[in-house]
Design a protein around this nucleic acid. Sequence first.
DNA 1: ATATTTGTTCGTTATTTTACGAACAACGAA
DNA 2: TTCGTTGTTCGTAAAATAACGAACAAATAT
Lengths: 110, 110
Amino acid sequence: MDKLIITEEQQKAARYAKAMGHPIRMYVLELLSKQSCCYSGDLTEYLPIVKSTLSQHLKELKDAGLIQGEIEAPRIKYCLNKENWKEAQDLFRKFLKIDIEEPIQKCNTI
Amino acid sequence: MDKLIITEEQQKAARYAKAMGHPIRMYVLELLSKQSCCYSGDLTEYLPIVKSTLSQHLKELKDAGLIQGEIEAPRIKYCLNKENWKEAQDLFRKFLKIDIEEPIQKCNTI
DNA sequence: ATATTTGTTCGTTATTTTACGAACAACGAA
DNA sequence: TTCGTTGTTCGTAAAATAACGAACAAATAT
């Protein structure tokens, strides 16, 4: 029996989910989905981490393709990567919207 | 300046996202959102991992609250934890703005 | 030219994650 | 009872993650 190949979409969705899988990064993404851009320095004011740690988190979001930085010397302006953000939206919309209309069964949950 | 406390919702969303952040777990969740239940043994047939590794992934999904197991000796039937799955759906819908189409705003710092 | 501001990179450490095989426990079947 | 099936737990190992402070680079301000 051949082993199932996980689909490209599942890989992508997992990649995005992983990037969202930390409270700091979730916070940044939610902020950017509301206000379109922000500066790293402003974030450190509000977040309970030092700038080097924040920089790492922003790098992860960048590597996952969810955000992008633009130099606005001497600061860096971050905003969503609109194209990939849309892809993530589509993937999750599809993944999440499937509705389960079954009656709740009695389960011996473990 | 007091440091911002990340909201409870962001913590929860990040927790769910983290659980979804692996292709195997994404595959299992997508399967369960489509077919309501599955057996661990059937999964190992199709997935390129050994059963102990699969067991670990299922445990993570269980610990995150996204799935639950029901003993159906000698096997174990897994299904979504409907309550928490709904919570995750709601959190992500809100986060991803799946329902609302907002106009893109001008750039503002926080 | 020098100092300051801003954010990344480096070096380090502790923890978590991912994976495997072996061993084990629970249960039904022979 | 003994055997086979099923899935978890244990032991182990490699890799990734998360956090910090120090050092650095780039650009602006003095």
